[in-house]
C-alpha cells in the first residue's frame, strides 16, 4: 500500500531532520557525560538562541546561516558564564544540586521570555525557504539539506576537538576520573564550565539551522529537548557517537511515524522507542559499561 518512492522520501526527510536533533542531543550528552546531570535548562536555552537568531535577522537583517559564528560564540560565552556565576556557584560541588538549579534556571528563562517576547509565534522569511532539491522520487527542502550538512560538519569538528586537543582530552578525562584529573593539574571547575559552554554552543548552532524552516515561541525549545533526551537514552547516556547515530535514527522514526500514522501522531514512534530502549537495553546502543 505504501509506495517505495514515498517511503524513500520519508527516510531522507527523517535523516535531514535528524541532523539538528544530533546537535541538540550532542550538547545534552556532553553536559551529562562531564557533569553527570541532565541539563534541564537545555530547551529554554535553545529557545533563547532561537530568539537571538530571530532578532539578529529582524533588527540587523543578518541571515540565519551567516549568524552561525556569532550565535555559536555568543551561546558558548553565555553558557560558560551561566555555569561560572550561577550553576557552579550555587551547586557547592554536588551533582544533584546542579540538576535542580538547571531546572530553576529553565523556569526563570521561560517566564522572562514570555514577559519580554510575548507568546506570539515568530518566523523568519528567507529567499531560500521554499527552495527544493529533487533527488529521485524525493523533493527535499534546501534549508533542511543545509542544516543536515552543517550539523554533521559541526559534530565532526567537535568530535575531533574532543579526540585530539589537550582540552578535549581533559574534558574526557574529567568525565570519568575527576580526582585523577586534578592530580595532573587539570582545572576541573574550568572544564565543567567549558563543557557546559560547548553544550550550549551546540544549541546556538541548532538555533541558526532551525530558524529558516521553523518558528519560535517561548515554549518551542521543549519539544526538541524531549526528542533529544530520547536520543541520548537511545544512544547511551554520555556517548558522543550514540547521540550522533541516535539522532539520525530518531529523525527517521519520527518521519516514518508521521507518514504511517499522520503528522499529528508521528511523535508516538519516538515515545515507543524510548520505552522499548528502557525495557530492552537501558544502557543504550553505545552505553558505557560501568
Amino acid at each position: 500500500m505504501l509506495d517505495p518512492g514515498i517511503l524513500f522520501a520519508g527516510v531522507l526527510n527523517g535523516l535531514l531532520a535528524g541532523g539538528v536533533y544530533v546537535l541538540v542531543a550532542v550538547g545534552l550528552t556532553l553536559i551529562y557525560g562531564v557533569l553527570h546531570i541532565i541539563n534541564f535548562a537545555h530547551g529554554s536555552l535553545l529557545m533563547l538562541a532561537m530568539y537571538a537568531v530571530f532578532f539578529l535577522w529582524r533588527l540587523t537583517g543578518v541571515d540565519p546561516y551567516a549568524a552561525l559564528p556569532i550565535v555559536i560564540g555568543g551561546a558558548f560565552v553565555f553558557g560558560y558564564i551561566l555555569y561560572r556565576l550561577v550553576i557552579g556557584r550555587l551547586s557547592h560541588g554536588r551533582d544533584e544540586n546542579i540538576l535542580l538549579i538547571t531546572l530553576g534556571v529553565s523556569i526563570v528563562i521561560d517566564n522572562v521570555a514570555l514577559l519580554i517576547f510575548g507568546g506570539d509565534t515568530q518566523t523568519i522569511e528567507t529567499p531560500y525557504a521554499s527552495s527544493f532539491v529533487e533527488l529521485g522520487a524525493a523533493l527535499l527542502p534546501l534549508p533542511k539539506i543545509i542544516s543536515f550538512v552543517a550539523s554533521l560538519l559541526l559534530c565532526i569538528v567537535l568530535g575531533l576537538f574532543l579526540a585530539r586537543s589537550d582540552t578535549g582530552k581533559a574534558i574526557r578525562a574529567v568525565a570519568r576520573e575527576r580526582q585523577g584529573a586534578r592530580l595532573v593539574g587539570i582545572d576541573v571547575d574550568n572544564i565543567f564550565a567549558l563543557s557546559y559552554g560547548i553544550g550550549i554552543a551546540c544549541l546556538g548552532a541548532a538555533a541558526c539551522l532551525l530558524m529558516p524552516t521553523y518558528y519560535v515561541t517561548p515554549s518551542s525549545g521543549h519539544a526538541f529537548v524531549l526528542v533529544a533526551f530520547t536520543i541520548v537514552v537511545l544512544g547511551g547516556m554520555g556517548s558522543f557517537a550514540g547521540a550522533a547515530v541516535g539522532g539520525l535514527v530518531i529523525g527517521v522514526i519520527e518521519s516514518l511515524g508521521g507518514l504511517l500514522l499522520g503528522e499529528q501522531l508521528g511523535q508516538i514512534g519516538i515515545s515507543v522507542v524510548f520505552i522499548l530502549i528502557l525495557l530492552l537495553k537501558p544502557s543504550g546502543l553505545f552505553g558505557a559499561r560501568q
Partner: peptide
C-alpha cells in the same frame, strides 16, 4: 588506586600527564 583515565588510551593518559607541566 592509580586513578588513570579508563576511557582514554594509554598514550592520551601519558600525554595528559604533561597537561600542566
Amino acid at each position: 588506586g592509580r586513578r588513570v583515565f579508563p576511557n582514554l588510551s594509554v598514550r592520551d593518559n601519558l600525554e595528559l600527564g604533561s597537561y600542566r607541566r
